[in-house]
Structures are given as C-alpha cells and as structure tokens.
C-alpha cells in the first residue's frame, strides 16, 4: 500500500513539472501554431544561469534565471520565428530544431560538456518525511508550485483582458484580429509567459538534481511535447493534462518497474503514446464536441 502511495506522490510531482513545460509549449502552439522544439533551450539557459549565479542572493539568482529565459524566448521569436509566420509547417518545425541545435552547441561552447552544478535550491533536496514513504522537500515544492502556477495561469487566462485575448487568438487568431486583438502583443505575451514557465521548470529540475547539461531542456521538452500531443494540443487544458499524464506515467513506471525492466522505461512510455494516438487521434482528453466543431 505504501508503495502505491509513494508511486502516486512521485508521479504527481513529476507530472506537475511536465505539466508546466506543457503549458509553455501549448501557449506558443495555440497562438502561433508553432511546435517549438527550441523551448527546451529556454529551460536550459535558465538552469545555466542558476548555476552561474548560485552564489548570489537567492531571489536575485531566481530572478536572473527568469530574465534569461524570457529574453531568449523573445529573442528567438524576433530573430527566427517572426520571419517564418507564413512558412510551411515542416520548415518552421525544422527551424526550431536548427535553433535548438545551434543553442545546444552554444551551451557546450560556453559552459563545457561536463555540466555545471546549479545548487541554488539544493536545500530542498532533503528528506521531509521518511518511514514507510519517502518524501523529499523538492517533491512537495514541485506539487505546490505546480498547482499554484497552473492555477495562476488559469486565472490569468480567464480573468485578465490580455489572457482573454490570448485564448481568443489561440482559438482563432484571424477572427481575434478583426476584433482589434493586437497579434504582436498577444504573441509577445505568449513568449514571455512561456519563458517564465521554462525558468520555473528549470528551478524545479535543478532543485531535484543540480547537474545542468546542454541537453537538459531538450529531454524535458520532448516528453512534454509528447504529452501535449497526447492530451490534445488544440486546447490548453487538455495539453496541460497530457503533460501531467506523461510525467505521472513516467514516474510511476520508473518506480514500479523492476531494475531489469527499468531500462526499457521509455519503450513502455512511448508504446503507450502510440496506442493513445491510434485510439484517440484528437487527444486523450479532447471532447467530441471540440473536435470538428470549427470549420477550417
């Protein structure tokens, strides 16, 4: 029994982190129809900034991390994506790859291949509860921060004017613009918000394991992106749930599989992904009402 509780706690914690990454990806996709593989680099830069500033006053270090990923998010849009608004989907997809590839090389160049330690929130990596179940502080923080931030985003999108405009743009940017919604401003907001989320993801990840490598963000992004598609990417809520589920399943399988099978963890996860895609191509959580309701 305590095993199951342990699995669930770990699953919720990792699910929360992936859900945050998934929101960041789904926000950009919603507004721009852009599948941004380079999203991972926003996480990576924030993690490196945490590493570099690990001897600063903590709030300043966290702030610097947020600033770096927001700046990079906006910069990538200005330099690359803005010019590709009308390009075929394959081109924009590969462009986000190319960007990710180049940035990864930059991280190698600047920070070396062996990784840096971002021990800013290391204090969280200690046991909070021990006994039948083990809970580290970072697990608690992941759950709390994840829930709080997701709620904050939900409130922001529902209650604020710019949030309302972002949802409208994500649903139908053409119509939104004819109502006076400024596309540039909405897109900028989406990139800023996705940058903030990336920084938070970086904080949570480095709190759990402080080693920052050049591919840190890419790994998370791949899983989160899978989650977004599995959940249903046309809708922020379903996309977020998808990210959560992928994180949850990953953590639970990681705990539950025996040592000899654990190495095949990603095979199990991706097999589940394929099954979901085949059985529910519109997404695991997409309502029948939502699919096909809108004309293209």
């Amino acid at each position: 029994m305590s095993n199951v509780i342990q699995y669930i706690i770990d699953g919720i914690a990792l699910g929360a982190v992936y859900a945050l990454a998934a929101v960041g990806i789904a926000l950009i996709f919603g507004v721009l129809r852009l599948v941004n593989f380079a999203y991972g680099e926003l996480i990576t830069i924030a993690a490196y900034v945490l590493a570099v500033t690990s001897n600063w006053w903590l709030p300043l270090s966290l702030l610097a991390a947020v600033a770096s990923s927001v700046a990079l998010a906006v910069l990538t849009d200005r330099v690359a994506f803005k010019r590709l608004r009308e390009a075929p989907p394959a081109t924009t997809l590969v462009a986000t790859f190319a960007l990710s590839f180049a940035l990864e090389a930059v991280w190698r160049l600047v920070f070396g291949v062996n990784g840096r330690s971002a021990d800013v929130l290391g204090a969280l990596n200690t046991t909070a509860i021990s006994g039948a179940i083990d809970v580290r502080w970072v697990t608690i923080v992941e759950v709390v921060v994840g829930a709080a931030l997701l709620s904050a985003i939900a409130i922001f999108l529902r209650r604020s004017t710019i949030g309302l405009q972002m949802r409208a743009a994500a649903s139908d940017i053409r119509t939104a613009r004819t109502l006076g919604v400024r596309a540039d401003r909405v897109i900028l907001s989406a990139f800023v918000l996705s940058g903030v989320l990336a920084a938070v993801v970086a904080m949570l990840l480095t709190a759990g394991s402080p080693l920052v490598t050049p591919t840190l963000g890419l790994e998370v992004t791949t899983f989160a992106l899978v989650g977004v598609v599995v959940g249903g990417m046309d809708n922020l809520v379903t996309a977020t749930l998808g990210g959560f589920v992928v994180g949850f399943v990953n953590a639970v399988l990681g705990d539950a599989l025996g040592a000899d099978l654990r190495v095949f963890l990603s095979s199990f996860t991706y097999l589940a992904v394929i099954l979901v895609l085949l059985l529910r191509p519109g997404g695991l959580f997409a309502s029948r009402r939502a699919t096909g309701a809108e004309r293209v």
Partner: peptide, 28 residues
C-alpha cells in the same frame, strides 16, 4: 492596415459562419 488596426479605426466585421469562439462563454 493590419486587421487589428482596421478594427480600431472603426470597422467591425461579422464574418460568414459567425466565427464565435466556441469554447468561450457568450459573455467572454
């Protein structure tokens, strides 16, 4: 002008097929 600027200049369009935001409330 871009569409948002046309709208803010004082023209409103009710498009064919209406194009409401279906997942949002009428109020929104």
């Amino acid at each position: 002008f871009r569409p948002e600027r046309v709208a803010r200049a004082g023209i409103a369009l009710v498009p064919e097929g209406r194009h409401l935001f279906p997942a949002m409330t009428v109020e929104e």
